[in-house]
Write a protein that binds this DNA or RNA. Structure first.
Lengths: 206, 206
DNA sequence: ACCTGAACACCGTTCAAGT
DNA sequence: ACCTGAACACCGTTCAAGT
């Protein structure tokens, strides 16, 4: 075996950096995600990170891709465990639950820094596609035989509701409406099952 | 009159800094909003900014408050100009239109940096309340006699749809659904008037 | 009261040099 | 192939000093 100088560096620093970044994100928020601080936390020089990521934003995108993987898994599990016919609602609730449980990660996943390089990052695109497919399958399952264009339109509308609800919740904006102070899951369930969003518009207005 | 040494500084540097910040935000994006860069653009030393704002985040909150003012005005105008019975839909379309027209400002208004200090910033709270009230009035107008709790729940649901749609649009996420490539206003109109988001759930499931 | 200049401890990125 | 150390041009914040 001879001498084994350092315990970490010969392994995969890439994952170690992502672990450190995730730790910082959870404990100290997005503003703590400095590349130098991440490297420090992983016990390497900051320049070492550039052997595994093009730049700081590429590291953030890789962290976001990890988030999408867990996100997709959480949505899929919620859909599978739901009572028949309620899978779609439960996926929506799981969406909001994930956002409330991992606010900083959720914001990172859908934030501007990650959005900027989304097109050129294949791993990120694949991970977020996995999450999207759970949503699309949910629509197809609850409305079998629907044509694909309608599936996509319904998915977009459903996605918008849960995504917007999550965003407003994290922002504390719902508090201004007297909502959002209690359990986020209960709030999500109430609003999602409470009926359509723009139902107040007269039918046939479009 | 005597000598008047410098043209700007005796006036209100506060507004000049916000003007510079807005210019930078529009032209170069959120990452250009460094306090030093803003001060440079306003032709002052960076330390001068601290005589008008507690710190960088306070400046960003003031900029966001400006955004909420314009936002509220845009929503109100859309509601007033809409044909009878369609005001609520048009306010929703205006919401998405604003986000698409001012993506960086919209992100700033609802982003994490501004959210962090939202509670302690009275001007920001007042400005965002004005925008919220347009939404609430829209719900009340389209469903007169509704009790206040239902008004708030409907407003939250409607807010979620348009807010989520805006966010997904800015992220380019709707492109993954084959949507979002065309006119954002047309897309908003289609989805908003296309019916309820979670309609696919069987009635009485909750 | 308002702005400057210098200082401090950070930051992202690059690059020659080490192993 | 992978990591280090030093350098560069930035950054937010503070504070004594100027007017």
């Amino acid at each position: 075996m001879a001498t084994r100088p350092r315990p970490y560096h010969h392994g995969n620093l890439r994952d170690a950096l992502l672990d450190a970044a995730e730790r910082l994100l959870e404990r100290k928020g997005a503003s703590a995600l400095a590349l130098r601080a991440i490297a420090r936390d992983a016990h390497v020089t900051h320049a070492a990170a550039y052997h595994h990521f093009d730049d700081r934003e590429a590291l953030l995108r890789a962290l976001a891709a990890r988030g999408y993987d867990r996100f997709a898994a959480a949505l899929a599990t919620a859909g599978e465990r739901a009572p028949p016919g309620r899978g779609f609602l439960e996926v929506g609730v799981a969406y909001v639950r994930f956002a409330a449980a991992h606010p900083a990660l959720f914001r990172l996943m859908f934030g501007a820094e990650v959005a900027r390089g989304r097109g050129g990052d294949d791993a990120l695109g694949a991970a977020s596609d996995r999450a999207l497919n759970v949503l699309l399958d949910g629509v197809r399952a609850s409305a079998p035989g629907l044509d694909e264009a309608s599936v996509r339109r319904r998915a977009a509308a459903a996605w918008a509701v849960v995504h917007g609800l999550s965003g407003l919740l994290l922002d504390g904006q719902l508090a201004a409406l007297g909502l959002g102070s209690g359990d986020p899951e209960r709030l999500a369930r109430e609003i999602l099952s409470g009926g359509a969003a723009l139902e107040t518009a007269p039918p046939g207005a479009g």
